[in-house]
Amino acid sequence: MITRRQWLQASSVFATALALGPRSAFAQPAKTVKVGVGLKSINASVINLLVGEALGYNAEEGFKVQGLALGGNANVQVATDKGDVDVGIGVPSYALPILARGEWGQSQWFYQYTYPYKWDVAVKPGSAVKAYADLKGKNIGVSDFGGTEYPVTRNVLKSLGIDPDKDVKWTAVGAGVPAGVALQRGAIDALAYYDTGFGIIDGAGIPLELVKRPDNLPMIGGQFLMGLRPRIQAERATFVGFGRSTAKASQFILENPTAGAKAFLKLYPETAPRGSTEEQAVKSVLEAISRRIKLYEPPYQGAKMGSIRVDEFVTEAKMNDWDIKDFSKIYTNDLIGEINNFDAEKIRAQARAYTG
Rank of each mutant, 00 (worst) to 15 (best):
A190P: 02
G197K: 01
I188F: 03
A187Y: 06
L191F: 15
G186N: 04
A192V: 02
A190I: 04
A192D: 01
L208T: 05
Y194I: 14
Y193C: 07
G186L: 00
T196R: 12
K212N: 12
D195W: 06
V211S: 10
A182T: 00
A182Q: 01
A190E: 03
L183H: 01
D202S: 15
I206H: 07
P207F: 11
Y193N: 13
I201P: 05
E209N: 13
I200C: 06
D202N: 13
G197E: 11
T196Q: 14
D202V: 05
I188D: 01
A182C: 06
G197T: 07
L210V: 02
R185G: 00
A190G: 09
G203P: 04
D195L: 08
V181H: 06
L191G: 02
G205D: 11
A182R: 03
L210W: 04
K212V: 03
I206G: 11
F198H: 05
R185W: 00
A190F: 05
R185D: 04
V211M: 11
A192E: 02
K212T: 12
D195Q: 14
L208Q: 12
A204R: 08
Q184P: 08
V181K: 14
Y194E: 15
A204K: 07
A182D: 02
A192W: 03
I188A: 06
P207N: 10
F198Q: 07
R213K: 15
Q184G: 10
A182F: 04
I200M: 13
F198V: 02
G186Q: 04
R213L: 14
R213F: 05
D202G: 09
I188N: 03
A182W: 03
A182S: 15
D202Q: 13
A192F: 05
Y193Q: 13
Y194N: 13
L210C: 06
I206W: 10
V211T: 08
V211Y: 07
A190M: 09
A192Q: 02
L208F: 15
I200E: 15
D202C: 06
Q184W: 08
I201L: 14
G203N: 15
V181F: 09
A204F: 03
I200G: 03
R213Q: 15
Y194Q: 15
A187M: 09
I206A: 13
E209R: 10
V211G: 11
I206V: 13
D189C: 09
E209P: 08
D195G: 14
A182P: 03
L210H: 14
G205S: 12
I201F: 11
G186V: 01
T196F: 13
D202L: 13
P207E: 06
A187I: 00
Q184I: 09
R185K: 14
A190H: 06
A190D: 04
A190W: 02
E209H: 10
G186A: 11
I200N: 09
G197P: 02
Q184K: 15
R185P: 00
Y194G: 13
D189S: 07
A190C: 12
G186E: 00
A187F: 04
A192K: 01
Y193S: 14
D189F: 08
I201T: 10
R185I: 00
F198P: 00
I206T: 09
D189L: 07
L208H: 13
G205M: 08
D195H: 12
K212S: 15
I206F: 10
V211N: 08
E209T: 15
L208I: 06
A204Q: 08
P207A: 14
D202P: 01
A187V: 00
F198T: 02
I188Q: 01
